[in-house]
């Protein structure tokens, strides 16, 4: 489904990813964890080419990613939820949800709106369809961003630290939506997060990234109870108290 082969990424002199290999299977829920500055966000952003790797290959559904194919591949295969929500502030919630389906997938507006309302209901915000995003709380905005990702009806969803910008009392409402999504067998989810409880509950596989490399990966049971790598142990001891 998603395959990264020897992906390197440098920003100027700083090498952020140092040859990452990763294969995410269809329907798999992969949680990427690691200290800040480890390269985990860059890693997930390479998957939909928001960052273009300096070298190495990214395949989505056996399509080789490139700068010129990014729009096409993202349109039919993946969606992303961002730390800062990135809803379009000049449009109502409903327009945020229908813009891409109408413009890119040529779905009739009526139909797109019905689908969008369905997803808004699913994240519990159908009464907010006609307001502007900036009037909503962070937690509500992020739930709407998830609904927007779903309206494209793609099978892959990337989550880049979806709860890191939220006030603590709003984290759970977003995690609840994500947990509910994870029950769908055919969704492939890649999640960068610091929420270890979420990783434990949802992940099929936890990937630990530090210093631009994948240092350890495994099932949550293995990962949280019996980590092998020293850096993994140090990291987990710091964040799990």
């Amino acid at each position: 489904m998603i395959r990264l082969e020897d992906v390197h990424k440098s920003f100027g002199d700083l090498e952020v990813l140092k040859g990452v290999n990763l294969h995410v299977k269809e329907g798999e829920k992969v949680v990427i964890i690691g200290p800040s500055g480890s390269g985990k966000s860059t890693l997930i952003r390479c998957m939909n080419y928001l960052e273009e790797p300096t070298s190495g290959k990214v395949y989505i559904h056996n399509h080789l990613m490139s700068r010129s194919r990014r729009a096409f591949i993202n349109k039919i295969h993946s969606s992303m939820v961002f730390q800062q929500f990135n809803l379009y502030p000049h449009m109502t919630v409903l327009d945020n949800l229908t813009l891409a389906p109408v413009k890119l997938k040529k779905i009739p507006r009526k139909e797109a709106e019905q689908t969008a309302m369905g997803y808004l209901k699913r994240v519990g915000l159908e009464e907010k369809a006609h307001v502007y995003p900036t009037t909503l709380s962070g937690g509500q905005q992020q739930r709407i961003a998830i609904a927007r990702a779903l309206t494209m009806q793609n099978r892959i969803i990337f989550f880049d630290e979806p709860t890191s910008a939220l006030d603590p009392e709003m984290v759970q409402e977003v995690l609840d939506v994500m947990i509910e999504l994870s029950h769908e067998k055919n969704f492939t989810m890649v999640v960068v997060t610091h929420e270890m409880g979420f990783a434990r509950e949802v992940a099929d596989r936890v990937v630990f990234v530090d210093g631009g490399n994948i240092l350890e990966e495994g099932t949550p049971e293995h990962f949280f109870t019996n980590p092998q790598n020293e850096r993994t142990k140090a990291f987990l001891s710091k964040i799990i108290r």
Binding site: N86, P89, F158
Partner: peptide, 27 residues
């Protein structure tokens, strides 16, 4: 216009030109 706006559009599959005219310029 914050960079996240065009990134959101790219992640949805909009091209650079579509992103400019549908997302960035109106803002």
């Amino acid at each position: 216009v914050p960079k996240g706006q065009s990134e959101a559009a790219y992640s949805q599959g909009f091209s650079q030109i579509q992103t400019m005219f549908l997302i960035v310029l109106p803002q």
